[in-house]
């Protein structure tokens, strides 16, 4: 028999019976994250799909202590939890703010920026499904250029690029910034394990496909997330101060249209060749920028 070396811990911290939709990337993201972080973790969760996914009180799927908190407050509440643990002499427990893209890129960015500037000893994970999914697929500033949402309807698709939050966080000079996705679980787990060993504000931007919001069959969620990486839409990077950016997984390039065609939210974009060209150019430019940062 051959010894297989699994890099992903086998401990299932998160329980079955969560309330995520079939194929929910956010639910899988949490399952993997808790494998990486272990049971000595406290979660702070603002309003987002995960406020529902964890289950109705008194049930909780997470398997670790979890504090729900208002939409804008994840990083601040996590700072308070951290301060209290420190006061008690517990500097080992990981305090993990777990927020959606809306709670991170939009309403929560002020508290996040402040916590990062203070270099609070917290791990902030943004699971990004690229819209406000809890409230029914409205645009966020993480919604990509050219995407349909209920507030960027067919006749007026999202006409601004996705906010580059990883760059914004790097600009705060925090000790660790990474991007990850559920479609590359080894990479995701390795990054969170690395992050868990570092003190200070660590930020992980985690792409989590949302079948109903992206208008994809639930069984395609992993395929689509993998394509996001292969098409350079969502490069997987790791950034530590004083070092060049590191591209951790670079699969053979796939064509952008393959990614877009797989998702109903880009149907209208695909009907507009000029807009499609703009999206293609923007992704190409960003990829250039990142590869340059990675080779400096």
């Amino acid at each position: 028999m051959q010894n297989v070396n699994f890099s992903i811990p086998s401990d299932e911290v998160m329980a079955a019976g969560h309330l995520g939709c079939a194929g929910c990337g956010a639910a899988l993201a949490m399952r993997l994250a808790l494998k990486a972080l272990g049971r000595r973790t406290i979660l702070v969760v603002p309003a987002c799909c995960w406020s529902v996914i964890d289950g109705p009180a008194p049930y909780s799927a997470a398997g670790v202590p979890l504090m729900h908190t208002p939409f804008a407050s994840a990083a601040a509440a996590a700072s308070g939890v951290r301060a209290a643990l420190d006061f008690k002499g517990d500097t080992e427990t990981t305090v993990c703010a777990w927020a959606g893209d809306g709670g991170t890129f939009d309403i929560g960015i002020q508290a996040l920026s402040a916590a990062a500037e203070r270099n609070e000893n917290i791990l902030y994970i943004c699971y990004d499904n690229e819209a406000y999914m809890n409230t029914g697929v409205q645009r966020s500033s993480a919604t990509p250029l050219g995407a349909w949402t209920t507030t960027t309807p067919r006749a007026h698709l999202k006409d601004r690029p996705k906010k580059d939050l990883a760059q914004i966080m790097v600009a705060h000079e925090v000790p660790y910034v990474a991007t990850a996705t559920v479609a590359y679980p080894d990479d995701l787990v390795a990054k969170l394990q690395r992050a868990a060993q570092i003190r200070g504000t660590r930020f992980v931007h985690l792409l989590a496909p949302c079948p109903p919001g992206w208008k994809i069959p639930s069984e395609d969620a992993m395929k689509v997330a993998r394509l996001a990486v292969a098409t350079r839409v969502f490069p997987l990077v790791e950034v530590e101060p004083g070092r060049p950016w590191r591209l951790t997984v670079v699969p053979p390039e796939a064509d952008l249209e393959e990614y877009l065609r797989a998702q109903g939210r880009f149907r209208a974009l695909l009907d507009d060749p000029a807009a499609l060209a703009r999206v293609r150019a923007a992704i190409g430019e960003r990829w250039q920028r990142i590869t340059r940062l990675a080779h400096d």
Binding site: M67, P70, A72, A75, A76, A77, R82, D86, Q110
Partner: peptide, 21 residues
């Protein structure tokens, strides 16, 4: 522990976090 937050919303959120501990 003194947390010099960036807003009152965050001030009370941080207090809530500490109190929840």
């Amino acid at each position: 522990r003194f947390i010099a937050v960036e807003s009152e919303h965050s001030a009370l959120a941080a207090c809530a976090g500490a109190s929840q501990v």
